[in-house]
Design a protein around this nucleic acid. Structure first.
Lengths: 223, 223
DNA sequence: CCGTAAATGTCGTCG
DNA sequence: CGACGACGTTTACGG
């Protein structure tokens, strides 16, 4: 990893064209070949960058000069360097990598254990019920024995309603299942998604993750 | 901007939980308060980070110690530092910012100016025509006076066709507008999107941004 | 500040 | 290699 602080201007010509006027910035060159240009704000996102695989060509005359970064698609990041204020390289080695523990999978697991969240007398037919266009998160039966397809998202947006709609269309072609109702479940459901769901006859359920987790965790129980 | 190379392990507790085993990494502290942890790969994306606004607390004993970064939501990034190999700070000042060209907004602006791109005699009714489920990019009339809804994307994919389909369904409920036709315009349209659009009776138009821009820019005109 | 759509999205997985 | 969905999406824009 190489860290360069330099006064520079930058041009990107690729999927779009972009220009950065002369200013002092951080140029970050990683071992994977990527180059990114950071200002002192905008959180972790660089002002400009080139993702690997790409090639960095340096043309330097006494500190000032030009970096040209090119990828296979012919996109170019051109960094015109006026003055180098700091230039430091360091070997980091391979990173052991990140261990993540996601929320959506957990949400599905908890709801599968507690389908009564959707209504009294509900039972789980199957989690990840397979169809030709992908698995339905939960297939249930309500108290009347009617089949219900449940789509679970952490954040409920319009795309999720579309996805559930496609599943319902497919499931309703199966005479053994039809008529199949739909439930859209998420920690938070956007107004637009609610409108579309209602328009399609799909019920929306907002799920409280903490409560659900509490239901699952004996140490969290109130009684 | 502060650049620290350190042997560290990292834990994030927030929207998910994540852990990074001990290794040498770059810790990037920006003037906006953000902290990000970079390995020597994964392009510009950090392994872990905290976005501003947040607060960094340092507890150090002879180089080793703990950084605790907290935001308002109570999310925490905890960096346990084993050894600091490099620590360098630099004043960058405010960045003049990025000038972009060629994004969807630009494409929409140009097409609004040149609806004849879609056909002779076409007129613009309104840009960003409002509906209950969001604004239609362009509402036009063709040479016969028929209403046409135009959805514009930089890259035309299935989602865009779905979006336009929803608009058409809604607009066609309005007896003052119906029947409304659809046009899907993009610099590049994926085959799948074309197939779906055709199936829905939606016309596809591939737009040449350079030509359109040339039409707009007198200095670029050939005649 | 909330809601919505775009993004050089990026990053996995799976066919 | 391309399509599809998730992302701690992030970011910009408009009400």
């Amino acid at each position: 990893m190489r860290l360069v602080i330099a006064r520079c201007s930058v041009d990107y010509i690729g999927r779009l064209t972009a220009h950065l006027p002369l200013a002092t910035r951080l140029l970050l060159v990683k071992a994977d070949g990527s180059v990114s240009v950071h200002a002192d704000d905008r959180a972790y996102k660089p002002l400009n960058w080139m993702s690997p695989p790409c090639r960095l060509e340096e043309q330097l005359d006494d500190g000032s000069g030009t970096w040209t970064v090119t990828n296979k698609a012919g996109e170019q990041l051109i960094i015109t360097i006026d003055e180098v204020l700091h230039d430091h390289a360091h070997e980091l080695g391979v990173d052991p990598g990140l261990q993540k523990d996601g929320v959506e999978a957990e949400l599905q697991r908890l709801l599968a254990l507690h389908v009564e969240t959707f209504g009294q007398g509900w039972t789980l037919v199957r989690r990840e019920y397979p169809t030709a266009i992908g698995p339905v998160d939960l297939l249930c039966r309500d108290a009347d024995g009617k089949v219900v397809a449940v789509e679970i998202k952490r954040r409920g947006e319009i795309d999720g309603v579309e996805q559930l709609t496609r599943y319902l269309e497919l499931l309703n072609r199966d005479p053994l299942l039809a008529p199949v109702k739909g439930v859209f479940a998420a920690q938070e459901i956007k107004p637009q998604a609610k409108v579309l769901a209602q328009d399609r006859g799909i019920d929306c359920v907002t799920v409280d993750y903490a409560v659900l987790k509490g239901t699952d965790d004996p140490t969290q129980r109130l009684f």
